[in-house]
Nucleic acid binder design. Sequence first.
DNA 1: GCGGGAAGTTACAGACCAGTCACACCCACG
DNA 2: CGTGGGTGTGACTGGTCTGTAACTTCCCGC
Lengths: 198, 198
Amino acid sequence: MDEICAKSKPRDRILDTATELFRRHGIRGIGVDAIAEAAGTNKMTLYRHFGSKDELIAECLRHQAEKFDRKWTAIEAAGDARAQLSAWIRLAGDYLEREKRGCDLANTAVELHEDDDHPARAVIEAFKIAQRDRLAVVCRAAGADDAELLADTLYLMLEGARVSRQSIGPEGPCSRFVKAAEAAVRSAIGEPRQVAAT
Amino acid sequence: MDEICAKSKPRDRILDTATELFRRHGIRGIGVDAIAEAAGTNKMTLYRHFGSKDELIAECLRHQAEKFDRKWTAIEAAGDARAQLSAWIRLAGDYLEREKRGCDLANTAVELHEDDDHPARAVIEAFKIAQRDRLAVVCRAAGADDAELLADTLYLMLEGARVSRQSIGPEGPCSRFVKAAEAAVRSAIGEPRQVAAT
DNA sequence: GCGGGAAGTTACAGACCAGTCACACCCACG
DNA sequence: CGTGGGTGTGACTGGTCTGTAACTTCCCGC
């Protein structure tokens, strides 16, 4: 963990290292000095690239949001809208099995508490709204009776699964997310024409 | 907010004040000194009653868990199992409208991050498992085709709604929780014999 | 009224933190 | 060669935090 990639530029190393350490220790649980050192650089360079710790946090989340956005290309390649819904569920399930911590953006929103002016706030809100709306578009295209309702249901279940993994652990309800989400889709639309999940 | 109740004993005032301040600022966002002062007492008295800040946090959550447990008596008074499910949803919806912050126990789990030895961990895990299992019992009694699946679905949706309120705000998907949860119950069981919700 | 335990007061230790400054360095490009 | 921009270094300010110690004061039951 000393250096994510020795040859990359300091700015990129700081961004990657900070993302990793914020995830592990929380934005209040790690200091800028420790981030800079872990990134194989120093505090001054960090402050020259990002004006403050809060700006660094916001930039990390922007980076994460873009990474999530790119996953939609894989979903859109899954076939028709009904298959895309199954692909979305499968990808979310994979994420739940892989990542011990939940969504960095949601976790940061929790850690921010009453701090409404934090630069990360706008990033989180915009990203979360976009994710839900993108899901709603697929639900509509898949012919759900009430696409908005199905999108809300799936969105809430995923958010819940990610936070539940942190309170109960991986054996709890979050391990049944895929099954529950598929059931919700089936009851709103019906079976997919060609089975997408194994 | 200076003193929650001037005449109560210091221990109770500290507990109530700490619960309130932890909710507002997060467990890392408020110091024991500020808690003691807001409770109309001092740090020494706080440390004499609770051995450490971590123990105080755990005790606050234990307190909160008992408060939630007591709400089940109202749910059980709502009638048969199907009516109890609607009562559970209505109560959760009220909670979402009333409380700006989500569940203190889940939020603390997020704030704890990799700290697996924290005394609050056991409290959170036991409480969350108990809540889900209690919900599953009602789902089974209400005659759900797959009671475990319905319990997971409702539990995940509520957890998601509470965390979503903190990232998107009260206008987002969390405002449609009641509608989505009722739809999930209807699709798993059917209409209640006597309408419980207005 | 008086004794004892609970509560308040003040000060302190030791650690951590965000952010700034002055200065030295290094390397690529002209 | 040399110069300038990006980078490294260490020290520093001023603040916050948990937890402890020694001492005083208050109040309730007897």
